[in-house]
């Protein structure tokens, strides 16, 4: 995978297939970007599991914190890493020991570790680096267009409405 430019179909495929996301490094501070992303993805129907050793035993938005990935007692589809690049390798190494292994390892905006990415890809895991799943979901669902952001997508098909209520859009199929 070329980690400088991901096709929309690759990102949409990941966000359409994963259901359980463990977020490593989520802050309990509600003003931090990690909290924004956690809350947003929770609201889009993903099962979100917060991972932060300093918060183990507490919970956030009704979800129990775990100290580390291997403490989580259920299968994880995607690990979303909110730690600086130098901390990525041990997290990926730990993720590779999980049974079953996660399908996706995602590193947030500004975070990139090519060696860790290669290690994960050699184990058959899809990798995304230096991207935000909230921004990507917003971009591909058209929600982010409401705030004037250049989504870099064109389509003559309607965007899909997600579930009930207003102002919640779905990702659609890769054809769209």
């Amino acid at each position: 995978m070329n980690h400088d430019a991901y096709p929309d179909s690759y990102i949409r495929g990941i966000l359409n297939s994963v259901k359980t996301i463990a977020m490593v490094g989520i802050s309990p501070n509600t003003s931090r970007p990690s909290y924004f992303v956690f809350k947003y993805l929770l609201g889009r129907g993903y099962r979100m599991i917060p991972v932060n050793p300093g918060q183990a035993g507490k919970d956030i938005l009704g979800q129990a914190f775990y100290a580390k990935l291997s403490d989580i007692p259920e299968p994880i589809d995607m690990v979303d890493i909110f730690r600086a690049s130098e901390h990525v390798m041990p997290i990926v190494q730990e993720a590779l020991t999980l049974k079953p292994k996660p399908q996706v390892i995602w590193m947030q905006l500004t975070i990139r570790d090519d060696a860790a990415a290669l290690l994960a890809e050699q184990a058959g895991i899809k990798v995304v680096m230096n991207r935000c799943p909230k921004i990507e979901y917003g971009r591909l669902s058209t929600e982010i267009s409401w705030i004037g952001v250049n989504s870099r997508t064109l389509s003559s098909k309607r965007a899909q409405i997600l579930g009930k209520g207003v102002q919640r859009m779905g990702l659609g199929t890769p054809k769209d």
């Binding site: 909290y35 924004f36 809350k39 947003y40 929600e143 982010i144 409401w146 705030i147 209520g165």
Partner: peptide, 16 residues
């Protein structure tokens, strides 16, 4: 949709 949706929008946590 509800109070939480409103709070998310005002707090810049949701697009809308």
């Amino acid at each position: 949709d509800d109070v939480d949706h409103a709070a998310s929008l005002f707090g810049l946590q949701a697009f809308g």
